[in-house]
Nucleic acid binder design. Structure first.
Length: 273
DNA sequence: AAGATTCGCAACCGCATAACA
DNA sequence: GTGTTATGCGGTTGCGAATCT
């Protein structure tokens, strides 16, 4: 929730879509919700930039889209995250890192914002209390790592302090000083998936099924069961690393290229659902 | 009872990328 | 090929509620 901008000077400092004086900000009223929901039911979503005007709302398009996506959409499920949903979030986060939209796409009725909030307020703390680094899903104390993984872990940390081992497909791990500019978490040692243009077609056409099967198998992998997190780690790290090695070569990717583009969201969801 | 602190979450911001002209 | 616009994503903020002192 943000303070509504009454001051035009403040409004002028904001992003282009919100600079218009007179645009409302802050919490939505039931009346606004009704206007937006009714309009979208009648006319459909999209063209968010012009939608507020057409719907008779004094909001920017971004704000309308967000309100619809996170709150008003009929498919949005409200209420407590169930234990099985929590388990799924943990597994998917271990696989995908902070790719909230990808994770949300696998959990019906939940939005990326909701999952992100739940992670930040509950799950990350829970993992920390269990001695697990919520970013890497590895023990916070390196001595708890299996001996065969210690070497690779320490060597990679020299290259990229704060990062997980090179074999972990966790795009969440980024340099400590990274900013939101580095949306793809590209580091000196990391390319991005899309950088290899000629591979795109293969990934799009040939490997989608392989990828979706892989993702499903990881989601269902017993090694990620949550009953005993430490046990899970010792089993899971080795298995996941091995799987990632295999998968990276299957997809024609260098391991450091493990990353997703926005459109992968739709691709993955389309195949997994 | 009241002030201080912590927590949860809705909303905003900046950026990347796709789509289009 | 280049510039512009629209959309979507992840990170962050800050208000209100809950809890603590």
């Amino acid at each position: 929730m943000r303070r509504p901008t009454a001051d035009p000077a403040e409004a002028a400092r904001t992003t282009p879509c919100c600079t218009k004086v007179g645009l409302k900000r802050g919490p939505w009223t039931p009346e606004e919700d009704e206007l937006l929901a009714n309009y979208i039911k009648k006319e459909g979503g999209g063209r968010w930039r012009t939608l507020p005007k057409r719907a008779g709302l004094l909001r920017c398009g971004k704000s309308c889209r967000l309100r619809w996506m996170n709150y008003l959409r009929p498919s949005v499920k409200r209420g407590q995250i169930a234990p099985d949903e929590e388990d799924l979030i943990l597994r998917l986060h271990r696989l995908l890192g902070n790719r909230w939209s990808l994770i949300a796409g696998r959990i019906p009725g939940r939005t990326d914002n909701e999952i992100k909030n739940y992670w930040n307020t509950h799950l990350s703390k829970k993992l920390v209390s269990q001695g697990i680094d919520p970013r890497t899903h590895r023990p916070l104390n390196p001595n708890q790592l299996p001996s065969h993984l210690k070497a690779s872990s320490s060597s990679s940390s020299k290259v990229n302090p704060g990062a997980s081992t090179a074999t972990t497909p966790n795009p969440n791990v980024k340099p400590a000083a990274s900013s939101s500019k580095e949306n793809h978490y590209q580091t000196e040692n990391q390319g991005v998936l899309r950088s290899n243009g000629e591979d795109d077609e293969d990934i799009n056409n040939c490997n989608d099924d392989v990828f979706s099967s892989f993702l499903n198998s990881l989601i269902n992998e017993d090694a990620f069961a949550t009953q005993n997190p430490l046990q899970q780690l010792t089993n899971g790290i080795a298995q996941a690393d091995a799987l990632v090695s295999i998968t990276a070569s299957t997809f024609g990717l260098a391991q450091q290229d493990w990353n997703f583009n926005q459109n992968d969201h739709e691709r993955v969801n389309g195949h997994l659902n």
